[in-house]
Nucleic acid binder design. Structure first.
Lengths: 315, 315
DNA sequence: TCAAAAGTGTTATCCTTACACCCATGT
DNA sequence: ACATGGGTGTAAGGATAACACTTTTGA
């Protein structure tokens, strides 16, 4: 037998706005297999950089070109790949996944079969607080986790802070990964049983749809990173077209962080930060009073943009 | 010839306090070669996870155990390894580096030959603003970059914001990597010429000592990450012993962010955040009035600690 | 007694939050 | 006219920044 070596796989969390939601690009195999993220091998012989390789295979796999791209994390623990993810890998090579986050200003219909945009809330329903605290937290998650925590004060504190179970604790939207890992660890995520080779029956799917391999973990990493990044870099503009109304901007942010924002204060924050400028043009298709169109104001320095958005969460 | 494949190298930015500075662990080869970060191969056959492999080889290479460990970034661009870094790699395998950040509460004398603690300011002198704006910025960096920028407004804005050349622009300490990359790109970092196979003569070393391969880039990534992280997670305690005075805490933070802090407001911030508690004990070796000793206050939830520090920078 | 470092108190300012209200359009 | 969403003003509270000052030790 050959000495085991390493194969590198690139996977992408591609996000784009899709009618009021922020959607993620997923692909599923021919035989109705579980969906996964777009992923492809990295070929050390021909690929000069990870990012170029990523862009080209996402284009091939989905027919879409991406704007913003950023590396997320490299996943390499033994046992993270499910058997089906190992199909096609030679011998017993170890597969290491480098996850990337990519943003596109519109969810264009994918040019390839099997690629589908779906909102992140399909994978993480409990992360969407736009219409208030999701019922599934109090009805399913809290009882299960409370049971798991038992009398252990460490566990209790952990579940309390992550899921805001105590009402003086705020929901921290960016901690997506920690929450997912808690659900995985306690067996609430069906992947946990699956990865052990056990049957996944019985567990409710109201906690979100699992993906192939560890792709839901990668997705959680991406969503968390994006939510966090929004606070200090104006990445939201990579999820919008050239011109937009302030409401559209606000809706776009809400569709990422999963929380409702306070209209007036959000606008004030955007203006004070000097992130946008008026175009003078007007959008009449609002349903009410027509709205003024804005565009991103580039600071000449462009990349150098320092400020993010203030996020006045409405309670 | 065999098909080229991938070899994974793990490299670590290990930081610890050392008499008033935050020092980085470096190792140099036998033949007085350039220093580099501790680095070692990842063996897919025997290493279950990256983190375990990292901990074990740093222990072997330096005789030290690490506390806090976090993955930084995976570097894989073609051409990033210098010829000397490729010694020992089979064939023309592509070497991919996974960089890690590790923190230790004390810079214990390394147990292995060739390992040396040195302050990050050796590599990035212009990042140390504790005694005011470093002269090298205005004397060396600014003229060179201004020349490079010429009339291009994009370039001008970029250098202005990154190096705070305009006095209404603040120095953003966490943008270490962007600054390093700018110096590299413009040829101010000797590595740039070296990596092209050109002689590195002539360039002043007042801009910091280069390291092997792309290790200075990895170090910049680590320092930047640590500085940023300090704002929202109390990682500073991983660089301190069990008990400390508030001055020591402040000095430790200053030695990371490279900026002087305002004493009273820093203390108020620490207290309001509830990060520390009094021990009742007293440190008399202060040189002036004895200081009360504090310890970290763990919120029962521990990991769950939400708040970072407020950093009232003194100007 | 003086230098050095610890520790306390007070005020002005800005940002955030919250609340209340007016405006312009389509039906 | 009224529902719908766009847009404005203002006041309260809290965090930050900046100021000056007292206390306790060692040399």
């Amino acid at each position: 037998m050959e000495k085991p070596r390493v194969a590198i796989e690139l996977s992408a969390v591609v996000m784009a706005p899709l009618d009021g939601e922020t959607a993620v690009l997923t692909v599923h195999g021919p035989d109705h297999a579980l969906s996964g993220l777009p992923a492809g091998p990295f070929d050390p012989a021909s690929d000069r950089t990870f990012e170029l390789a990523l862009r080209s295979f996402v284009a091939r796999q989905t027919g879409l070109a991406m704007g913003f791209v950023e590396q997320l994390y490299t996943f390499g623990d033994a046992g993270r790949e499910t058997p089906q993810a190992r199909a096609g890998v030679e011998g017993d090579d170890r597969v290491v996944s480098i996850g990337y986050l990519a943003l596109a200003p519109a969810a264009k219909a994918p040019g390839a079969a099997g690629a589908i945009w779906c909102p992140w809330s399909d994978a993480f329903p409990y992360e969407d607080w736009r219409d208030g605290r999701p019922a599934v937290i109090d009805e399913v998650i809290a009882p299960w986790l409370t049971d798991w925590a038992g009398d252990d004060p460490m566990r209790r504190a952990r579940i309390d802070t992550l899921f805001a179970l105590n009402d003086r604790l705020a929901w921290r939207d960016e901690r997506v990964l920690e929450r997912y890992e808690l659900l995985y660890e306690t067996g609430l995520a069906p992947e946990a049983a699956r990865d052990q080779g056990q049957p996944t029956s019985g567990k409710p799917l109201s906690l979100g749809l699992p993906l192939q391999s560890d792709h839901r973990r990668i997705l959680a990493t991406g969503l968390g990173r994006l939510r966090g990044k929004l606070r200090y870099r104006p990445v939201i503009f990579d999820l919008l077209g050239e011109e937009f109304t302030l409401s559209q901007l606000q809706k776009a942010v809400e569709a990422v962080i999963g929380q409702p924002l306070h209209k007036q204060n959000f606008r004030r924050g955007v203006e004070r930060a000097g992130l946008v400028e008026r175009t003078g043009r007007i959008d009449t298709a609002t349903g009410g009073r027509p709205a003024e169109l804005f565009r991103r104001r580039r600071e000449a320095g462009d990349q150098a943009q320092t400020l993010g958005l203030s996020l006045p969460i409405r309670r």
